[in-house]
Structure formats: structure tokens, C-alpha cells
């Protein structure tokens, strides 16, 4: 499926019942050079909208929220050694974690690519 987006600038893409989550290009640009990523451990249950990870640049730290509810399957441990991936490749290699989603209906709350592009444009 194509990606869906949150107002907090996370993206989510579904591969079967497994979802992959990252932050958008807009988000990484706002943050600046990412220097550290704190990832959730596999097996943790998260609710939609709750903190799931933390991303830090030199001057800012932001929570990454779970776009939907579910169970964390795999954190992208590559980011621990190479946080710059979030800047270089936010949409692919810089993903944060995968999760098994528990309520697919929650995906309906999210924006599609076009809606997100409009949303970002509004932010100026």
C-alpha cells in the first residue's frame, strides 16, 4: 500500500499485517542533523498516539508517536550506530521500527500523501 501520514510527521506503510514507521523528510529537515535515536524494544505494546521512540538532533529532541496501536516487532538498530540515516534516507533506510497493528481501522484517521503535502504547505 502507499504511505499514510500523521500530523506529527510520522509515516507508516503496511506490508501485510506488518507496518513500518519512520519520520518524514519535512520532519528530518526541521530537526537538523540527527545525532541519536532511542528505539522501542521488540514486544512492547503501544497505543495510537503514544510515545514510541525519541529522535534527537543537536538542539532538539522529539518524540516519535505510534501512528496506530499494536506491538513493536523490530526496531531499526542500524540507526543506533548511524543516526544520520534519518537525514539521508528518511523514507526508506531511515525507518524507526516495525509493528504488528491491532486495529486497522485506525489507519483511516491518517492522511494520504496528497493531504499530507497540503498540510505541510500550510505550515509554511
Amino acid at each position: 500500500m502507499s504511505k499514510k501520514f500523521t500530523k506529527d510527521h510520522e509515516w507508516i506503510s503496511l506490508e501485510g499485517d506488518l507496518a513500518r514507521i519512520g519520520i518524514t523528510d519535512y520532519a528530518q529537515e526541521q530537526l537538523g542533523d540527527v545525532v541519536f535515536v532511542e528505539l522501542p524494544e521488540a514486544g512492547r505494546q503501544v497505543e495510537q498516539g503514544n510515545d514510541a521512540a525519541v529522535v534527537e538532533s543537536v538542539k532538539a529532541a522529539s518524540e516519535v508517536y505510534a501512528p496506530v496501536s499494536g506491538e513493536i516487532v523490530e526496531p531499526n538498530v542500524k540507526l543506533e550506530d548511524e543516526p544520520a540515516l534519518v537525514n539521508q534516507d528518511p523514507a526508506e533506510g531511515g525507518w524507526f521500527f516495525t509493528m504488528k497493528i491491532s486495529n486497522p481501522d485506525e489507519l483511516n484517521d491518517l492522511m494520504d500523501e496528497a493531504a499530507y503535502a497540503d498540510y505541510v504547505k500550510e505550515l509554511g
Partner: peptide, 10 residues
Amino acid sequence: TLSTREQHIR
């Protein structure tokens, strides 16, 4: 460095 732990940012 690592000041994202600190009160003025966090």
C-alpha cells in the same frame, strides 16, 4: 554536548 538530556531543551 548531548544537551538534549537537559532542561533547557527537554
